[in-house]
Design a protein around this nucleic acid. Structure first.
Lengths: 202, 202
DNA sequence: CCAGTTAGGATACAGTTGTATCCATTCAGG
DNA sequence: CCTGAATGGATACAACTGTATCCTAACTGG
């Protein structure tokens, strides 16, 4: 064999090229040949490491999930210790809204996938399990916080959480379209959290 | 000439066919030939009434704007008279979240256009002016409501409005992906409005 | 050292795309 | 009546798509 090569690394390289295209020029600009060009390899190499375009697209979606997960863990690790209920919400919601250039590109790609999933049942379920899991997780946290007296007893944790997540998603849209800056979006989230958890105790 | 024909009507028919495709199968499924098939005319007819695919797409975006506008007016006319500040917000936000099958299709198409606009500067500005206008309008209303004592004086109308619009957009996403029903989304909006305007005076 | 597997270059193929052209039909005005 | 413009059918074309095939070079285990 010619110099043996790490298949996983190769696939990862191609997946990154795919996401770079999807994030800058959209999912409809993603073709086998474009990926090859972006990764500076030949078309054959792309075909060699991925049987299908479908497989390639799924790999891209996977990688996006991994990155999101990594960002959350990172954020939690950074602000270690201060795991106040409010801290958890600020971390999770803050990760959803794109901040730096990289997370903006990822959000763009994510949005492209999400829109595609709306009319392509093959990707539909993937875009559903993650949000639902997140919603359940946060609802449990907020219910606990309410029992501990951290938020007003007349709040409905389920609805508050659903509202906060929808808010973060909506803000992400407006940040991507440059209607709003990242800072403005964060301000709106903090404002909401102030109202929920009482004036900033951070 | 053969039977003379109303060009505007013809264009409108084709535009509707375009939006039907965009709403059900996505914008990437929109081709000249598909539109022709959907409208049950020949490819030449589509070419004849629209110089470009670009022109066709712009026409679709236009029509979506017109429909949104019509829905808002309709909603306001229906609940005529009861123009409480809260009524205005319930009407506008309620129109954003898709309710019946038609508004769901339109929302789907709108989402497709929005996503496309993120990477296609040709459509970028159109998707910006409408949301901004809406935000300014509602902010003015809420500021007035605050001066009239309808909402708490320590609220920030600008941030409240931005938050409510982002919320409605986020909820729309979740309704389109069938993560949430229309009713569940409305419940969340009403909950927020209760907190803003005090317990339901409707 | 050499047989055989692995990694990729080059090219082909059928389908779809937007757009352009050629041509027939139908009617209104002189 | 008949010339010429309006309407659209049929077809062509080049570019692009995903996928398949053929072939060559490189290395490794025996």
């Amino acid at each position: 064999m010619p110099r043996p090569v790490d298949h996983d690394e190769r696939r990862h390289l191609l997946t990154e090229a795919l996401l770079r295209i999807a994030g800058t020029r959209g999912l409809q600009a993603v073709s086998m040949r474009e990926i090859a060009a972006e990764a500076e390899v030949s078309l054959r190499v792309v075909q060699y490491y991925f049987t299908n375009k479908q497989a390639l697209l799924e790999s891209g979606l996977n990688e996006l999930g991994v990155r999101m997960d990594r960002r959350v863990r990172q954020r939690v690790a950074t602000a270690a210790g201060k795991l106040t209920p409010r801290g958890v919400f600020a971390a999770v919601l803050g990760v959803i809204v794109p901040s730096d250039e990289q997370s903006r590109l990822d959000s763009m790609a994510w949005t492209a996938y999400y829109t595609a999933a709306l009319t392509d049942p093959a990707l539909a379920e993937v875009g559903l399990t993650l949000p639902n899991a997140l919603e359940d997780f946060l609802t449990a946290r907020l219910t606990a916080a309410q029992e501990a007296g951290d938020i007003a007893p007349d709040c409905d944790p389920r609805i508050e959480v659903a509202g906060l997540l929808a808010l973060a998603n909506g803000l992400t849209s407006s940040v991507l379209s440059r209607q709003r800056t990242h800072e403005a979006a964060i301000e709106i989230i903090e404002y909401r959290l102030d109202r929920l958890f009482g004036p900033a105790v951070s």
